[in-house]
Amino acid sequence: MSRRGWVLFALMSVLWGIPYLMIKVAVEGVSVPVLVFARTGLGAVLLLPFALRAGGFGMLRRHWRWLAVFSLLEILGPWALLSDAERELSSSMTGLLIAAVPIVGVLVARLTGDAERLGPARWAGLLLGLAGVAVLAAPHLDGGSAWSIGEVMLVVLGYSTAPLIAARKLADLPNLPLTTVCLTFAALVYLPPAVVTWPDTMPSGRVLAALAGLGAICTALAFMLFLELIREVGTSRAMVFTYVNPAVAVVAGVILLSEPLTSTIVVSFALILCGSVLATARQPATKANLTDAPPVGALPADAPPADAQHADALPR
């Protein structure tokens, strides 16, 4: 990989590893609807000039139903659930739970039409990853955190399902217009509740900085850099940074928010990371693999957690 590729890779690992930190800070001063509206609205405004230059908005009209479903599973639901969950959970724990997306993604693909068989290594990866989630979540299920953990698990399911919709129903749509439309739709949906729950006093500078960072850096800038990374190193290599994001989330939470680094977090991170790598590893081509090819339009089970031709890897 070129030096430019490594720089882009490092930037993406950070930019999509710190949203959990910024969400944790932002929910201290604003409501969940205000947070989601600020993030999606600012991201849409900043991406709009680039999307207009790219063109292709006309192609989106005939897919509006699937665009709405995709937006619901990738932005509308997850970003609100994440924000509400982080009122109770630490940012590092949230980031680790989200790391289960590649694992659940393999299961969802398998249950929704992927005909590829899972070998022993990939089954072992699924079990390892799920064990990591259990190790992390189990100590908190008997208290007030159970609801928040459930919210994050719904986010994981949404993030795992949205790529399938993008790959199977939105395959012919251009990236930037699709992303901009989804962000704009989400901002409009959250505008009324944001107005109703608007803070009576100006939030602190810390909270405002977090909101600005979520919209401008973790959404608009991150998505542009993500496209550049794909152009530079290709799809498969570009998506490897998703395995680094949880570590960034944990480190950021520990250093900047003084969140505890416990043995449970370390063990669960190792299990989830190893499980994700094994569960999404490509199988060597065999005669059986070629015979049992997946149906046209199906997302392969060994595909990365986000289809690189679309915006299903939106900043998180």
Rank of each mutant, 00 (worst) to 15 (best):
V108L: 14
A124K: 02
G129I: 03
L126V: 11
L118I: 12
E116T: 15
L127W: 12
W123Q: 03
P120H: 09
W123K: 04
V106Y: 09
D114V: 15
P120W: 13
G119N: 13
L111H: 07
L128V: 04
A109T: 06
L127R: 03
G113I: 14
G125I: 02
G129P: 06
L107V: 14
G113P: 12
V101M: 07
G105L: 08
A109F: 08
I103Q: 04
G105W: 01
W123G: 02
G119R: 13
G113A: 13
G125N: 04
R122A: 08
L107Q: 03
A124G: 14
R117D: 09
R110I: 06
E116F: 13
L111N: 07
V106A: 10
A100I: 04
D114C: 15
A109R: 08
A99Q: 01
G119L: 11
A124F: 13
L128M: 07
R117C: 09
L128G: 00
G129N: 00
P102H: 06
R117A: 15
L128P: 02
V104I: 14
G113S: 13
L128N: 00
A115M: 14
G125Q: 02
A100S: 10
R122S: 07
I103G: 07
T112K: 05
G129D: 01
V108G: 08
P102I: 10
G129L: 02
R110W: 12
V106R: 04
P120Y: 09
A99E: 00
L127P: 04
A109Y: 05
P120A: 14
P120E: 04
V101Y: 04
V108I: 15
A115P: 01
A121G: 07
A115K: 14
P102T: 06
A121P: 00
W123E: 01
E116S: 15
T112I: 11
E116P: 11
L127A: 14
V106S: 08
V106Q: 04
L127C: 11
I103N: 03
L126E: 01
T112L: 15
P120D: 05
A109Q: 11
A99T: 04
L128W: 02
A99K: 01
L118N: 07
V108W: 10
G105S: 12
G125M: 02
G129R: 00
V108C: 09
V101G: 05
G129W: 00
V108A: 09
P102W: 08
G105P: 03
G105K: 01
L107K: 02
D114A: 15
G105C: 07
W123P: 03
T112D: 01
V104K: 02
